[in-house]
Amino acid sequence: MLTIIKYSLKEMLNKKIFVATLVLALIFLGLYGGALYMVYHKGGNFPDLIIRSTVSSQLLGAGFYFSTFIIAFLTVLGGIGTISLELESGLLYTVLTKPITRTKFMLGKFTGLALMLIIFSVFMLSSVLILNIIMAGKVFYNFQIINIIKAVNIYFLIPLTLLAIVFFFSTRLKSLATGIVVIMLFMLGIIGGFLEQIGVLIQKQELVDIGILASLISPVDSMYRKFFSVLYDVENTPLSLISTGPFGSIHPPSGWMVIYTIVFILAFVTLAIRKFNRMDL
């Protein structure tokens, strides 16, 4: 299984989609850094510390939110190429006649891709965070290390959820169809997340319910909101109000949602492996 993990990781790094994503991510970070500079150094003074911190949290949230989009698209486009296309092209014939079970092959592929996505997520999150620390200076919210660690671990569930969905559909649909379905599910989660936040803001329970339902189908956005709320320690800090906004979390998901997402990932991977074991190649 280690060989499959190693080569899946290596394969992803060699993919054009990875190189293209990396280049675009660097362009995004450059533009984002430029925008932060304009706001903090050329945008005039915000006399009120609370307002300044709120602006800072929104800018940080925007950075994280768009990084999530980049990570999500890399997960989907990189993932479908690795499983569906290999199945379609017959690349697996020589691999799956080796002394390795299909289960170990799938787990190896998942682990390899997951590791790469985790590394990429760490790169994106730390880049956004560092840019904010450099540009915002003392205005920047003083995060606790423990909260950063907890939040980042929750954040990893975003690419892992998408990857699990990719694996699930890769064993059932063609690569293009898999890509479309997973992106639609990702978008469903995003829209659901927005509806939930708006529902809380305007106190419309129906909107909140729709948002929760969308989160259950695609818990990606919920994990983003949870990540942001944990980062700002919403439950314990009164100042955390500054973290609300379009990219923050007025109504953070509960701890149960994290458990639900972990079960969701395990269930989708298990179902993908189950299907793969029964497939004619």
Binding site: Y7, E11, N14, K15, S89, G90, L91, Y93, T94, T97
Partner: peptide, 11 residues
Amino acid sequence: YLPELFRYHDW
């Protein structure tokens, strides 16, 4: 095994 439709990791 050498399959009929041989395709290998081109990278």
